[in-house]
């Protein structure tokens, strides 16, 4: 299972490189704006992916390393449906449900019995990473597959000399809307109150007569669906899905959790946007740094705020 570093290409689907002369001031401003925008759209994919990891960790103390596999699974389901039926929206729904159901299977079938044993959970998830990666390689081969973008979204807005596609705008919109919605659910509703209480004192929640197990299952399902959404939408931004995508992206989700902190929607958003924007900017202005900037950011956060920028735990 050699895993090429394809992540280096990820936000680069829309990024720019200069062929000849160094840019003027105005040009570099425009390219900065452009790369920030594409960084935000990339960050939104990361957010959708890592919000699930963060919620599940906060609530159930499970680091779901298999999350990236759900992402990949949804991407593949989406691509297959798109190929056979041609309907993007159907692909979206099927992809999300596929990831949700797969998540439920993993949770109910395996992780359920391992609630207090983090090490065992991690190993089970590692096992799933190996299995699903290898199955993908077996059935689909090593060539990355890309998701066709629906026609409505193929147009683009000009940003200086570059084109910013509607598709990316749509992702940014979906990301912010979902983030707002999740934040609202978590902070302002009864369900959110139960979830927050479950993160703090699960025994007390159970003692109040609330079935925390049901809440946990629902949260795991929602988290898996989010990663499914990221998987279907994300293929257009990260430049296709292949067998190592799952492993790479769960790693990115972990990086987001380290930077943003676990257990909060805001933290996941902050971490995802920071990684997305900085990586995109680095790719535009100083490409050799692009692969390392994430680690630099992580090191900084670990040094000064070991529990992440906005962590709940």
């Amino acid at each position: 299972m050699t895993r090429p570093v394809a992540r280096s290409l990820s936000p680069g689907a829309g990024c720019i490189t200069w062929a000849r002369e160094p840019p003027g001031r105005r040009e570099s401003l425009v390219s900065a704006v452009y790369s920030i925008l594409s960084g935000i759209s990339y960050g939104m994919v990361l957010f959708l992916l890592s919000a699930g990891v963060s919620i599940v960790f906060g609530l159930m103390n499970i680091i779901n390393l298999a999350h990236g596999m759900l992402f990949m699974l949804a991407g593949y389901a989406g691509i297959e449906i798109m190929k056979t039926t041609g309907s993007f929206w159907l692909a979206l729904v099927v992809g999300i449900l596929a990831a949700g159901v797969a998540g439920l299977v993993i949770e109910r079938g395996f992780l359920r019995t391992l609630y207090a044993k983090q090490l065992s959970q991690i190993l089970v998830c590692f096992g799933f990473i190996y299995i699903i990666t290898n199955l993908h390689l077996w059935f689909y081969g090593p060539i990355p597959k890309a998701m066709p973008i629906p026609e409505v979204l193929t147009n683009s807005v000009p940003v200086g000399p570059y084109n910013f596609s509607y598709y990316r705008i749509m992702i940014i919109a979906v990301g912010f809307l979902l983030c707002g919605f999740l934040y609202w659910v978590q902070e302002r509703t009864r369900v959110g109150a139960i979830v927050r209480a479950g993160m703090e004192k699960p025994e007390m929640v159970n003692a109040m007569g609330i079935n925390l197990m049901a809440v946990n299952i629902a949260a795991f399902f929602v988290a898996s669906c989010l990663s499914g959404l990221a998987g279907v939408l994300g293929t257009g931004v990260i430049g296709g899905i292949s067998y190592f995508t799952g492993g790479n992206y769960v790693f990115l989700a972990i990086a987001v959790c380290i930077i943003g902190g676990v257990g909060s929607i805001q933290g996941a958003l902050a971490g995802a946007l920071i990684i997305g924007v900085f990586e995109s900017l680095a790719k535009t202005f100083y490409p050799p740094l692009a692969l390392y900037i994430m680690y630099l950011l992580m090191a900084l956060v670990i040094m000064f705020r070991p529990s992440g920028l906005l962590g709940r735990k």
């Binding site: 299972m1 395996f110 190993l123 089970v124 590692f126 096992g127 799933f128 990473i129 190996y130 299995i131 699903i132 990666t133 290898n134 199955l135 077996w138």
Partner: peptide, 11 residues
């Protein structure tokens, strides 16, 4: 198929 077997072994 070694990774597949290894994954099953993990679980």
């Amino acid at each position: 198929r070694w990774p597949l077997i290894l994954g099953c072994l993990f679980i």
